[in-house]
Design a binder for these strands. Structure first.
Length: 174
DNA sequence: CGGTTTTGACCAGCGC
DNA sequence: GCGCTGGTCAAAACCG
């Protein structure tokens, strides 16, 4: 039970997504990170595994003048991609998970005074998207929804990741 | 200067 | 069909 966090970020099993949180978190052991889950600060609120094949949206090029974007397979019924949503109690809504994200949109959702941000993984061929949203009821809770699976290994060191983790521990009341 | 964010417009799905 | 809502585009602004 070293890295239960890997289940939160869908990734190919071959990429051996391991977050070696050894130390650095103010001298605490690696179990300090797992305390986040144990304290029920992070929880997967909805995971819908759609058996439908998530077709590649062919968004490799950025200058694509897509005439029809949502209409791709008329015979199919709206092929939904698997989404992995979980919420985190944190003051920072940019939870850096090691991948590089580019923001491509922001919309205000109803029943929520906080806008929702849309991010896309900046990697050629990797169409992973995520959206972060903050609850209007409890602004300390950030809901992050991942969509898709990364087809490439992690791009950054875990230094920054640990940094964010330490921030999360600072702001968590536990 | 190149990559990223911002922000309004555009589009599709859905309910009425 | 119309309006609302959510998701994306894309051009300009921003930033290192």
């Amino acid at each position: 039970m070293e890295n239960n966090y890997s289940m939160l970020f869908p990734c190919p099993p071959s990429s051996s997504y391991q977050i070696p949180i050894t130390s650095g978190l103010n001298g605490q052991s690696s179990n300090a990170f797992l305390g986040l889950k144990a304290n029920n600060n992070d929880q997967i609120i909805s995971v819908n595994h759609d058996h439908d094949e998530d077709e590649k949206r062919d968004e490799g090029s950025v200058n694509v003048v897509n005439d029809q974007q949502g209409v791709k397979k008329k015979g199919e019924k709206k092929a939904k991609k698997p989404k992995y949503a979980f919420q985190t109690r944190s003051q920072v809504d940019i939870l850096d998970d090691g991948y590089r994200w580019r923001k491509y949109g922001q919309k205000a959702v109803k029943n929520n005074k906080f806008p929702r941000s849309y991010y896309r993984c900046t990697h050629q061929g990797c169409n992973v998207k995520k959206q972060v949203q903050r609850l209007t009821k409890d602004e300390g809770v950030v809901v992050t929804t991942y969509e898709g699976v990364h087809t490439h290994p992690i791009e950054k060191t875990t230094d920054n990741f640990e940094h964010i983790l330490s921030q999360m521990q600072i702001y968590t009341p536990f």
